[in-house]
Write a protein that binds this DNA or RNA. Structure first.
Lengths: 104, 104
DNA sequence: TATTTATTTCAAGAGGTATTGAAATATGGA
DNA sequence: TCCATATTTCAATACCTCTTGAAATAAATA
């Protein structure tokens, strides 16, 4: 992970529709949701939803699996965690004394 | 915090220069860094650095304080934490049984 | 007060991202 | 095979963001 890559990943999160998708999938957990259900939940057209799902999928935030006619999406928590850890890397010069400044 | 606001905040993080700034300030911790030192660290011109510092300041990710001729910037960990918590809100339907799926 | 240092502001141009609706693709069932 | 359902792809348009360099502002010192 470098700064430009991480910036692209944050870019994938910098859209209201895409955050609605992520948050819906965070709540859904391992069950996931179909593209159609996601479109209904975020109140967006199929093509618009698909556009945003692709952006999130390309960034690695969501996983996709076909179940019959539907595509089921799930959030990938590891990707979110990796990005947060990148941001906090080397926090406060690595000093354990100052470590509390990094907690949230 | 709503989806559009959070999207703007992620937008403020969706740039390589701005991530370099944040990460430098995360490392610097409570000491902070001057705008000039930041410009040197991220290898960007003063005007470009100032543009990105403004974006981060407006988003609330960094705090600013004048010390003599210099402006000293510090990261605001609370803002980062608030954004991460927004993303993970209601994780896995709030089920404590499934809570492990949300950890990273 | 005049000068130097530190930083921000501004305008113009280039490049990137979102929305729409129609058409294409993929799958399952009659 | 034919049809219906589920989802993606595409092209056009509109909008937003970044970079650059020059000029403006702010504060400290001689």
């Amino acid at each position: 992970m470098d700064d430009e890559k991480a910036a692209d990943l944050f870019g994938a999160l910098s859209n209201g529709d895409r955050l609605k998708v992520i948050r819906a999938l965070v709540e859904a957990g391992p069950d996931g949701m179909s593209a159609g259900d996601i479109a209904g939940k975020i109140k967006a057209s199929p093509s618009r939803t698909s556009f945003h799902l692709s952006a999130l999928f390309d960034a690695g935030f969501i996983l996709r699996e076909r179940r019959s006619r539907s595509l089921i999406y799930q959030v990938d928590f590891k990707r979110i965690g990796g990005l947060v850890n990148f941001l906090m890397e080397g926090c406060c010069k690595g000093s354990s004394e100052l470590r509390s400044c990094c907690s949230f």
